[in-house]
Simulated scan of single mutants.
Amino acid sequence: TTYIGKGIAIPHGENAVKECVKESGIVVLQYPDGVQFGDDKAYLIIGIAGRGNDHLAILANLATTMDEYSDEQLHELYTTKDPDVLYKVFTKVD
């Protein structure tokens, strides 16, 4: 599982297909009611495509950013209906 805690999972591609990635980027999926992710429940699933070794920097930035959020702030990210709230958080990371 790529569940990292705090209701967040970060699935990403495998090394075997890394050369197929044309541009680095992320996609953020929000599940206000949560979805099972291994033995845990994820509310945000952040998919990563990293060109070359970009995925390492993206993973590090995401982990650092999400670690700085309180439980209340994370709950807002899990449940907001305003896409701009999520966009502002993740454009700083991307």
Rank of each mutant, 00 (worst) to 15 (best):
D67G: 06
I58V: 03
Y87W: 12
V89K: 10
Y43S: 08
Y78K: 07
S24W: 03
A57H: 11
D94S: 13
K22I: 12
L59P: 01
E14M: 07
G5M: 02
D67S: 10
E23Y: 03
Y31D: 15
D71R: 08
V17A: 00
D94M: 15
V93M: 08
T1F: 02
V27A: 12
V21A: 09
K22G: 12
G50Y: 04
L56K: 10
Q73N: 14
G34L: 05
S70P: 14
G50P: 01
D33L: 13
K88A: 14
G13Q: 09
R51M: 14
L62Y: 00
I46P: 11
G38Y: 07
G47R: 00
V21P: 01
P32C: 14
H75A: 15
T91N: 14
D82V: 05
I58T: 03
G52V: 02
G7W: 02
S70T: 07
D82I: 08
P11A: 00
D54W: 04
G34F: 03
D94K: 14
Y31S: 05
G38R: 05
G47A: 03
L29S: 13
Y43T: 13
L56D: 03
L86I: 10
D82S: 12
K6Y: 13
D39P: 08
K92M: 14
A9G: 07
V93L: 06
K92Q: 15
P32A: 12
A49K: 04
I4W: 02
D67P: 10
I46T: 05
E14W: 04
G13P: 08
E72T: 12
T1V: 09
I46F: 09
Y69D: 11
K22Y: 06
H75N: 08
K22A: 09
N15R: 05
G7E: 06
G5E: 06
D94L: 12
D54H: 02
A16F: 03
V85E: 08
G5S: 10
L77P: 08
Y31I: 12
P32T: 15
L62M: 14
T65F: 15
M66A: 04
T80G: 09
G34T: 10
D67M: 15
N61G: 08
N53C: 03
T1R: 06
G34E: 05
A57R: 10
V28Q: 05
T65H: 09
F90E: 01
N15E: 06
V35H: 00
F90M: 01
K41G: 11
P32W: 10
G5T: 10
P11C: 01
N53V: 07
D71T: 11
T65Y: 06
G5R: 07
E14G: 09
K81I: 09
L59R: 01
L59Q: 04
L44V: 01
N15Q: 03
D54G: 07
V93A: 09
Q73C: 12
K92F: 15
S24Y: 03
V89F: 13
K88F: 13
E68C: 10
L62N: 06
V28K: 02
I46C: 05
D84T: 13
E72S: 15
I48T: 04
I8H: 01
N15S: 05
I4N: 04
D84N: 08
I46Y: 01
T80Y: 13
N61M: 09
K6Q: 15
D67N: 11
D40L: 02
I48V: 13
